[in-house]
């Protein structure tokens, strides 16, 4: 009986203890996480800008306006400008198909969309070399028709598309699945055609998720190194993207220039982060509609 009484009297205390860990455990966990973040994320970020500006603004400015750097910038922007819209269309189409229809091979499609996440980017690059390279399957045919893919811009674009495929589709699938098909059905019954349904109902409903996926997709498209490195051939001013340009500069001991170009990518990351946070905020708002429960 005493145990029962004790249990009852200490019930409140018990439940409090069950609900949360004691203070020092909390502080150790928070401390660990913060130290880790500072050490591995914040310090390198500061270091990038510090190294970039070490020799002054003039060197910094010269490094990022040098023709090869500008060419790398153009190529990076071009690759992203092609890869992101294509993945946007593919992502919407794939997510629509998966979320709103039942068909055979749906699971295979989902697995395929995830493939770029599970394959090392270097392997992805090698696959393209094997398929489109001079010694590859399509190599002789491409050479005969004077089309160059590997060690040229098309290869870089292809590699970029490959590694960024999952971002938009992955973001949209759960969102569209959660929203279901009723609104589209309602639109069609009211007389809307497929195009009107897409533009007036489906896209407005997924716009924030779509933007979120696009931001991530863009960040990855501009930052991709591994796959692009394999197919690029590192031709200065021609097949060098920004990340590859950073590597070349670094290997040539032009540290200040390397960090200056790297700081551009770091800035891209910061802008992405800010945009992502903003969109996440809007997404959360969209998903927690206020309920007003009065009846009139």
């Amino acid at each position: 009986m005493t145990t029962l009484a004790q249990t009852l009297s200490s019930g409140r205390l018990q439940s409090a203890r069950i609900a949360e860990e004691s203070a020092w455990v909390r502080w150790i966990l928070i401390g660990l996480a913060l130290t880790f973040l500072a050490l591995f994320l914040f310090v390198p970020l500061v270091a990038v800008f510090h190294e970039a500006l070490k020799k002054g603004w003039d060197v910094y400015y010269a490094a990022i306006t040098e023709p090869d750097a500008l060419a790398a910038m153009r190529l990076t922007l071009t690759a992203a400008a092609i890869a992101v819209p294509l993945n946007l269309i593919f992502g919407i189409a794939a997510a629509w198909a998966i979320a709103k229809f039942e068909f055979r091979g749906k699971n295979i499609l989902i697995t395929l969309i995830d493939l770029p996440f599970s394959v090392s980017p270097v392997v992805a690059g090698l696959i393209y070399v094997l398929v489109f390279g001079l010694q590859g399957w399509l190599g002789p045919w491409l050479a005969a028709h004077d089309i160059q893919i590997i060690f040229a811009v098309p290869g870089i674009v292809l590699a970029t598309i490959f590694v960024t495929v999952p971002f938009i589709a992955r973001e949209l699938i759960p969102l569209m699945q959660a929203q279901g098909t009723e609104e589209e059905e309602a639109a069609v019954i009211l007389g809307a055609n497929g195009w009107q349904t897409l533009w007036r109902v489906t896209l407005p409903n997924i716009k924030w998720g779509l933007l979120y996926g696009t931001i991530l997709c863009n960040a990855r498209a501009m930052g991709e190194f591994g796959a692009v490195s394999v197919v690029s051939g590192h031709i200065r001013g021609s097949t060098n993207t920004l990340p590859l340009h950073v590597e070349i500069l670094y290997n040539e001991y032009s540290f200040a220039a390397a960090f200056a170009v790297a700081s551009l990518l770091a800035m891209l990351a910061l802008i992405t982060l800010a945009a992502k946070t903003l969109v996440e905020h809007r997404l959360a708002k969209q998903h927690q509609p206020r309920e007003i429960n009065h009846e009139h």
Partner: peptide, 24 residues
């Protein structure tokens, strides 16, 4: 058609919801 869970267009005002069938 009236759905059990209403299926109103969440991105449109009430007015636009009702107007939808005429606008398309």
């Amino acid at each position: 058609f009236v759905f059990q869970h209403y299926a109103l267009f969440r991105n449109m005002t009430i007015f636009e919801n009702v107007a939808f069938g005429l606008r398309v």
